[in-house]
Design a protein around this nucleic acid. Structure first.
Lengths: 145, 145
DNA sequence: CAAATATAATTGATATATCAATTATATTTA
DNA sequence: TAAATATAATTGATATATCAATTATATTTG
């Protein structure tokens, strides 16, 4: 069966780009005194900005399963980065809050994440970013539902 | 601390595109009578085309850890999709082969994967694909090493 | 050649991904 | 309002991701 080599497809290229980006980004984050992952930071960031957010919404924002979010939060609570309590208004939900320790690690991590993005976008013009965004948007549209 | 919303970055867009693509692709593959994942198919495909390939090379090609590859192969051997024997020339290596059952599922899966790619690339011109490829190439370059 | 170093694969530990089932609470409908 | 349905979160099972350590074999170096 004739079949285009994976490595020539845009999907392979996307996978490669995102994989390398993750490795680079995590590598830089590892220089922190706290052992945290990029995804943990992104999770805490959402909670810190919007403590009203539900775990279902967090899962959607981070492209994760709600089960994964539950377990990620569990770990972060254990390590005292987050607080989790019952939501007074809707008792199916949990009220999430970043602790002082959580806020501290966010303060340290945010500049690193910004830097990572800058590194990865080096010599890509604003116009090119827009094009890239739009083309990816087409894929998103094509693959939705 | 001022901080660009994740959802506006190209990295978020890349993550979203690849995530949706995976979900769509896996959904279509699930229509097969065999319960296999896209990654299992891509792994078997590499082995089928090049039985000389090592697990280290497989890991690189699929952007995975060698430990993951070991375990993926283990499962595929158990399910009789692959054969794994000692390599005669280099006894540190394993000789991998697709079984008839493995070849059968590949035959069925390949057209689906081709179709998935077509769906995702709908209304993206060849020129646009090239641009996308090149821009992602820049990110790959920026994040390498 | 023997010792040191490198390579291929496996294994262990822990976290995350995925899917299905379950529990608790809210909301809608008959 | 009681019953049916929907929603939020958790839990269980299994696979994969990641990092470190280990085993076996090859290759290089003194």
């Amino acid at each position: 069966m004739e079949y285009k080599a994976s490595s020539e497809t845009i999907f392979y290229q996307i996978e490669k780009a995102i994989k390398q980006y993750r490795v680079m980004a995590q590598g830089n984050l590892n220089k922190l005194e706290y052992k945290v992952t990029i995804n943990q930071i992104l999770l805490m960031l959402q909670i810190d900005r919007n403590p009203e957010i539900s775990q279902v919404e967090l899962a959607e924002l981070l492209f994760k399963d709600v089960a994964s979010v539950t377990r990620m939060i569990e770990l972060l609570v254990k390590r005292n980065f987050l607080l989790r309590e019952e939501d007074k208004k809707d008792r199916r939900k949990k009220a999430l809050k970043t602790t002082d320790k959580g806020k501290r690690v966010l303060e340290l991590a945010i500049p690193i994440i910004k830097k990572n993005r800058e590194i990865a976008q080096n010599d890509i013009t604003e116009e090119e970013k827009e094009i890239l965004f739009k083309l990816l948007g087409k894929i998103i549209l094509n693959t939705s539902k």
